[in-house]
């Protein structure tokens, strides 16, 4: 691969921090077509399985006094439901399954990506951009369907002085269209950065002198990444709720 040639010129220290993000076919070595089974497919399937195990198999007891798995499932349910209700309001609960889907997918993809040798599906901009665009389109369409042209008052800041309003409208418009970009790049960038940094530190352990230090650093980064994995899923979800609130109540 490209990085092999790149590492050879650096006096023995070979870093391949980006190799872990390569999308490869699971079987064989051919081209990656649209329907090829790739490692991305594999880890997404694992994500589905994990969600199924937690939310369906975990609650199969339907116990009034919950088991551990059921407690976690109920915790996730309550967490997202409360977030939707608190941030976006009661009428946004129609979208609760949709938001729950995004949250569960991101959180499990992030955590599964933390396993050694794993492929992090959410570290790819293609994946997060699709999710962000889904949210963006939902919010925009919903806003126009619910409020009609009044949705445009989102860009017309009526509390500002009249002279400033056109300028603010332009800024608001730009920031509105930047939303899906920042929404997707935040998640993908965070996951990519964390994994790449871990890989770089792991690369340093090739030198025996600094190996203990690098292993310590990898452990510390790993702990941080566990936190970041959850927080980024949380942030993605809560921003979705915030955008939904904008669509339902554009007058701020």
């Amino acid at each position: 691969m490209a990085t092999e040639a790149h590492g050879a010129g650096e006096g023995g220290l070979a870093f391949h921090p980006m190799d872990q993000f390569l999308v490869k076919p699971l079987f064989g070595d051919g081209e990656v077509g649209m329907f090829t089974l790739t490692n991305a497919t594999f880890w997404m399937a694992l994500t589905i399985l994990a969600i199924f195990a937690l939310l369906v198999m975990g609650t199969s007891g339907r116990a009034t006094i919950p088991s551990r798995m059921q407690s976690v499932a109920e915790l996730a349910y309550d967490f997202v439901r409360k977030m939707v209700e608190d941030v976006a309001g009661k009428e946004a609960l129609v979208f609760f399954p949709y938001i729950m889907t995004l949250f569960m997918f991101i959180v499990f993809a992030n955590f599964l990506g933390l396993l050694p040798m794993a492929f992090t599906t959410t570290s790819h901009i293609a994946v997060t951009a699709v999710m962000a665009m889904m949210v963006f389109l939902t919010v925009t369409i919903l806003g126009f369907v619910k409020n009609g042209p009044a949705f445009l008052s989102l860009f017309w800041v009526s509390s500002a002085p009249l002279a400033l309003r056109p300028i603010l409208a332009v800024i608001e418009l730009i920031s509105y269209f930047v939303r899906p970009v920042s929404h997707s790049i935040r998640l993908a960038g965070n996951m990519m950065a964390g994994h790449a940094v871990i890989k770089v530190f792991a690369g340093f352990s090739q030198v025996a002198m600094i190996a203990p230090l690098s292993i310590l650093a990898v452990s510390a980064m790993y702990g941080l990444e566990v936190l970041v994995s959850f927080i980024q899923a949380y942030v993605f979800t809560i921003l979705t709720c915030v955008y939904l609130k904008d669509a339902l109540h554009p007058h701020h």
């Binding site: 329907f35 497919t41 997404m44 997918f105």
Partner: peptide, 12 residues
């Protein structure tokens, strides 16, 4: 690889 990832993401 985009089409592949997007397809499988939507399926998931």
């Amino acid at each position: 690889t985009f089409s592949n990832q997007i397809f499988w993401l939507l399926v998931s």
